[in-house]
């Protein structure tokens, strides 16, 4: 519940390398900040209860569910979203791997899959396909594109 009488608070953080200063209600989640306040719609709202992974973003390089994180807790942090990966027309190599491996169908989970995979690789744990399959299980894909998702991640990670 939001209420206009409730005090709004200032927040400064970096999103995809760009500094943002916003004034928000304290109850705003990071996901709602991204989507509703900043118009970054690439990060999806799948369940809004931290169990589907569609809203995965990186905060200081670690993957989190943006729907479960309050925006105000990200003060001074560095948030990376799907919009921050491609350099102009040039896809990030992991995005390219997803395209080449048909690692998507309806596409709704795809941004979360890619951000989660980047986090996993950053953790140094994307060492083989079985491990990737195990550790990507928090990112649901109802179309069942998992084999290709795992293959894309493994190809990029050199696993």
């Amino acid at each position: 519940m939001t209420d206009s009488s409730r005090q709004r608070v200032a927040l400064a953080l970096a999103i995809n390398g760009r500094r943002h200063r916003v004034t928000i209600e304290p109850s705003t989640t990071l996901l709602d900040l991204l989507r509703d306040e900043l118009g970054l719609f690439g990060t999806k709202k799948g369940c809004d209860m931290g169990a589907c992974g569609a809203c995965t973003v990186l905060v200081d390089g670690r993957r989190i569910n943006a729907c479960l994180a309050l925006a105000v807790m990200q003060e001074g942090r560095d948030v990376q979203t799907i919009e921050g990966l491609a350099e102009g027309e040039a896809l990030h190599p992991l995005q390219q791997a997803f395209v080449e491996h048909d690692a998507l169908q309806c596409g709704y989970c795809t941004p979360g899959q890619i951000m989660s995979a980047l986090g996993l690789i950053g953790e140094g744990r994307a060492t083989d396909a079985a491990g990737i399959a195990e550790q990507m299980s928090g990112n649901l894909c109802r179309c069942g594109a998992h084999p290709n998702i795992v293959a894309a991640i493994a190809a990029y990670a050199g696993a």
Binding site: L40, F41, G42, I82, L85, F98, L104, G107, I114
Partner: peptide, 18 residues
Amino acid sequence: RHDSALKHTTGEAIYLDD
């Protein structure tokens, strides 16, 4: 590949709530 494959990976594919 799927017609929206690139947009799905960049987050640019627009769904109704987006």
